[in-house]
């Protein structure tokens, strides 16, 4: 059974059709990235899955529960999921360890508090007041609170916005660790390299519809699209688009008698493909 199963999800705000029929199937253990420009319906979709918003139409099963479920069933459901929201600046007067410990009490099978602190790299900030944390440290605390309940499914909403490159790498390593524990992760992000580094599959959403679901390397025909070979010939930089870059390189190598000056073979990045996809929809 899939951890997330969505069929025909629709949601409108007045005359604005934010989500116009989204289907998603995400199996256990997968890291799935949802990509899309602002206003594409990404946040609405995720917030409906998280149980924060109602829907107008569609069937949803998250770990076998409907996110709109209430009462004790809702508590049992929330006991098995973790949510890392975009920005929270609450509880400034508590220390990191107090907050993590307190949240661990909400769950039936919490992770070990010290292990979680170590996993997110906050051991040394354990006694610090939350309001004195840096942005990146705060974000790591958000993640700690999201995973403390040993969730089977984790929602990560733009987890590394505002991170410096080093902090992002450290964060990615943390997510890789979670992958190792079998946690299913639904990630939304603006960073295409992040999706590429982490996600098993990505979905691109635009105008309230999923345009494509694929692996990052195959999205938008990326794996089979033309490569561009570029090199220097005298004072000129030359380029050639080709389906057979190896043949081009071999030909050039013969031409130059060995080393090709400033050789580069460029395949379209995930970002190029993505921009083309969301641009194409507007045409």
């Amino acid at each position: 059974m899939n951890v997330i199963e969505v069929k025909g999800l629709k949601k409108s705000y007045g005359q604005v059709h934010a989500v116009r029929g989204v289907d998603l199937s995400i199996p256990a253990g997968e890291i799935f990235a949802l990509l899309g420009p602002n206003g594409a319906g990404k946040t609405t979709t995720v917030e409906i899955l998280e149980g924060f918003r109602s829907r107008d139409a569609g069937e949803i099963s998250i770990l076998g529960f409907d996110p709109q479920t209430t009462g004790h069933a809702a508590r049992q459901w929330r006991n098995r999921i973790g949510i890392v929201l975009q920005s929270a600046a609450d509880a400034g007067d508590l220390t990191v360890i107090e907050t993590v410990k307190h949240f661990s009490e909400y769950y039936s099978n919490p992770r070990n508090v010290d292990e979680v602190m170590a996993a997110v790299g906050l051991e040394e900030k354990s006694g610090a007041l939350i309001r004195n944390l840096s942005g990146g440290q705060r974000r790591r605390l958000d993640v700690a609170l999201g995973i403390i309940g040993s969730p089977e499914l984790l929602f990560l909403d733009e987890p590394t916005t505002g991170f410096d490159p080093e902090a992002r790498r450290a964060f990615w390593a943390l997510i890789e660790k979670l992958r190792g524990t079998g946690t299913t992760i639904l990630l939304t992000t603006h960073y295409l390299d992040e999706a590429e580094a982490l996600a098993d599959r990505v979905a691109v959403i635009n105008n309230g519809l999923i345009i494509e679901v694929s692996t990052p390397s195959e999205l938008g025909g990326r794996a089979t699209s033309q490569a561009v070979v570029s090199w220097r010939d005298g004072s000129q930089v030359k380029t050639e688009a080709t389906d057979n870059p190896t043949a081009v390189v071999a030909r050039l190598s013969t031409h130059f008698g060995g080393e090709i000056p400033e050789l580069a073979v460029i395949r379209p990045s995930l970002e190029d493909i993505y921009l083309k996809m969301i641009g194409g929809v507007h045409e």
């Binding site: 924060f52 049992q76 929201l85 929270a88 609450d90 769950y107 039936s108």
Partner: peptide, 17 residues
Amino acid sequence: MERDVGGLKRLRGTPMP
């Protein structure tokens, strides 16, 4: 004020009733 800074939404996402 707690609602403004996202503290309540975070709590809503946990099994705490």
